[in-house]
Amino acid sequence: MELIRGLHNLRDKHRGCVATIGNFDGVHRGHQKVLDQVKRKALELGLPSTVIIFEPQPREFFAGSEAPPRVTRFDEKVRLLREQGIDRILCLTFNARLRRMSAQAFVDELLLKGLHVRHFVVGDDFRFGCDRAGDYTMLELAGRQHGFSVEHTHTFLIDQQRVSSTWVRETLMRGDFDLAERLLGRPYTVTGRVLHGQKLGRQLGVPTANVRMHRFRCPLQGVYCVWARVAGQQVPSICNVGIRPTVNGRLPVLEVHLFDVNQSLYGRLMQVEFLHFLRPEKRFSDLDALKSQIHQDIELARAWFSENQPAQPISGN
């Protein structure tokens, strides 16, 4: 799969494709239905499948820190789209210039000149261009004029409700990981490199692996039972996601304590699969109180694994 960053990196070889566009946050089962439409038409026409996404996502551009947290990080989204069998991803930087692009320029510069789209899959409520002036009807008219077809996306329902990134996000925030797995078509995970932290966990007698979050705001916050998959192992673990208010933390951190593992994991790629919510994150009066709570959390997590999830080693990273 090829990742193309920006219109300026499109080349002649990228012209002629079947495309769709959106945030694809989470690459959930509704998204997968759309991707299936794209892939089927691409196979029929003998053309590559292309997914157009934005970075940052438009709501993040407009709302900044008030935008809702993402379901998946950018690199995980790319990995999931690759696993869905998409040939190309075109990532457009959503900035003031793109925000000002007219609907006509969107058609001319992106769909025609940039990609030479032969078939375009979008929702019938899809709006595009400055002030959302473009719509499905405009796309159909442009398609008739310039030789490309337009198709509605197929709505995917679970329990008579349309699957959406918002529903996935709300489900995760409630800690309902069984429903989240139904919506996503897979367990909810966060993947990242283990990096050096403040070594606070080690000082408290509970060493942790800190997973690099970059700018990702996870929809979860609190303490969870998780699988940690790293260095060829799947290990029952406990995880804290949050800002660590007891030590005046400001940036979100994902910290994992792997049960009965005593080895350096720095630089390793770790996948964290969330299984069960234990408690919300909170501020403690001092480090001794925090240490006491952490050991209570570990006891509860071990008991939960003993009753629910017997550990079995698997192949890992």
Rank of each mutant, 00 (worst) to 15 (best):
M1I: 00
L3A: 12
I4K: 13
R5F: 11
R5C: 11
H8D: 11
D12M: 13
R15N: 10
C17R: 04
V18P: 04
A19G: 02
T20G: 05
T20W: 03
I21L: 14
F24N: 08
D25N: 12
H31A: 06
H31M: 12
V34E: 09
Q37A: 11
K39W: 00
A42N: 02
L45W: 02
L47N: 08
S49Y: 00
V51Y: 01
I52F: 03
P56Q: 10
P56D: 13
Q57E: 13
P58V: 13
P58R: 10
F62G: 01
A63G: 00
G64F: 10
G64S: 12
G64N: 01
E66Q: 15
P69H: 12
F74V: 02
E76P: 06
E83V: 01
R88C: 05
I89C: 04
L90H: 05
C91E: 14
F94Q: 06
F94C: 10
A96W: 00
L98D: 10
R100Q: 14
S102R: 08
S102V: 01
A105M: 10
F106L: 03
V107S: 07
E109W: 05
G114H: 02
L115Q: 11
R118T: 01
V122M: 06
D125G: 07
D125C: 12
F126D: 04
C130W: 12
R132L: 15
R132D: 09
M138C: 04
L139W: 06
L141M: 04
H146G: 08
G147H: 09
S149G: 09
T155L: 15
F156Y: 14
F156I: 07
L157C: 03
L157W: 02
I158H: 09
S164G: 07
S165Q: 02
V168T: 04
T171Y: 06
T171E: 05
M173A: 15
G175H: 06
G175Q: 07
D178E: 15
L183I: 13
L184K: 07
G185W: 13
G185D: 10
T189P: 01
T191R: 15
T191D: 02
R193Q: 12
V194C: 12
V194T: 00
L195K: 00
L195F: 00
H196Y: 06
L200C: 04
R202H: 12
V206K: 03
P207N: 09
T208V: 06
T208P: 07
T208E: 10
N210A: 13
M213S: 01
H214K: 14
R215V: 09
R215E: 14
P219S: 10
L220C: 05
G222H: 07
V226Q: 02
R229D: 07
V230P: 07
A231S: 14
G232N: 04
Q233K: 15
Q234E: 01
N240T: 08
G242F: 01
P245T: 01
P245M: 13
T246H: 03
V247D: 03
V247G: 10
V253I: 09
H257K: 05
F259N: 00
D260I: 06
V261N: 05
Q263V: 03
S264A: 11
R268W: 08
M270H: 08
M270I: 00
E273D: 08
F277P: 02
L278G: 04
R279Q: 11
R283T: 13
F284V: 05
D286A: 14
D286L: 13
L287I: 14
D288R: 07
K291Y: 07
Q293E: 13
I294S: 02
I298V: 13
W304R: 09
W304L: 05
N308L: 13
P313D: 00
S315K: 10
